[in-house]
Nucleic acid binder design. Structure first.
Lengths: 194, 194
DNA sequence: CGATGCCGTAAGCAAGTGCTTACGGCCGAA
DNA sequence: TTCGGCCGTAAGCACTTGCTTACGGCATCG
């Protein structure tokens, strides 16, 4: 945990590189430790940068969080057509360490209220509408309910996998089959119309 | 936020009552705010008690957390036979405010590691084994995988419902039908054996 | 009554937090 | 070369955190 993982030792006088180093360090730490437990000193250290620069470039800790996580999430959201978002998300979730992180960062952004509330609402709406568009029904509310359940499912799996000692069987091989089956069942409007 | 909700003004010199007041205040705040954002001062204030007593009775903040949340969870786990745990949990989740709280407290107990790790692992194992026993199959790993997916589903719904502005359709009426259908699909061993 | 043992209180400490400020030095422009 | 504007740094401030300690008071028991 002490040695950095993805940081180039930016010793040059390049503000853009410094910003980038801070953002990647922030993404890693926010995802791994959550917002509260991540200190600005830790982010700056991981980026190999003085902490004062963090405030110069991002204003405050919340500004850094917002920019770091929003960028990471938008990358995944816009990586392809909405019809493939579910597949992309599932695939990302089971990658060794990689792309499940922004989800955790968002969820751990704040306990209940406060930090990143707008961001959470915005991302939730984006995912929900994308999933809801996959439901072939006229009942809008029902489509949204199914989409939100599906998103909750994905979030729950990500959360459980992040808890040490729990979710040992939630591997790609063991779980993704059941996951895809349950997902299509949730999205299939021919079953259990309300 | 400032005025307490469920606290009797314990002015008497009754250590048991003081302990209870601290525990209920802790349950409410840990569930609402998470472990990090909940301060011992806030718990003591909500309980109408001096904060020094908190340390006298529970040793430290983590001891208070452990005792408060463990008791609340064990209550739900042992409220009936394991076969009905799923139904009990779903019912508790959609109660106005009540029993979804301990789940949130456990999840928000710590970002990744540290506080309440043993508790999370213990509760996860209890739920997983209870759900796995409902799967009618000889393939133990498959049963565990299905149980963990189901638990993840429930956790995800609870988490989403706790985020303001997201999960607006995750009400009992709109969602529980789909939820029960997806749950039985996950537990039905006749579909999608690995 | 006097004494002993809890219960409750006030005050504060050491450490860590986000954030600010004043300063030194490298760079390109004039 | 000189100068002005960024980039990077060290130091510290105001505040909150979990936790401790020394003390005052009610109550029970002899």
């Amino acid at each position: 945990m002490s040695s950095a993982g993805t940081d180039e030792p930016v010793r040059t006088r390049d503000s853009a590189a410094t910003r980038r180093a801070l953002l990647t360090a922030a993404q890693e730490l926010f995802a791994a430790e959550g917002y509260d437990r991540t200190t600005v000193r830790a982010v700056a250290d991981r980026a190999g940068v003085n902490q004062a620069l963090l405030f110069r470039y991002f204003g405050n800790k919340e500004g850094l969080f917002s920019e770091a996580v929003r960028g990471e999430m938008m990358e995944l959201l816009n990586a392809g057509p909405p019809e493939e978002l579910l597949e992309r998300t599932i695939a990302a979730m089971f990658e060794p360490v990689k792309s499940a992180e922004p989800f955790l960062a968002v969820l751990r952004g704040a306990g209940s209220s406060g930090v990143g509330a707008d961001l959470r609402a915005e991302l939730g709406a984006a995912y929900t509408s994308a999933f809801a568009s996959l439901v072939d029904t006229d009942d809008h509310d029902d489509a949204v309910a199914r989409a939100e359940l599906l998103l909750a499912f994905l979030l729950g799996i990500t959360v459980m996998r992040s808890i040490p000692g729990v979710g040992t069987m939630l591997t790609a091989e063991a779980a993704s089959g059941h996951l895809r089956r349950a997902s299509t069942a949730l999205l299939d409007s021919s079953s259990g119309r309300s």
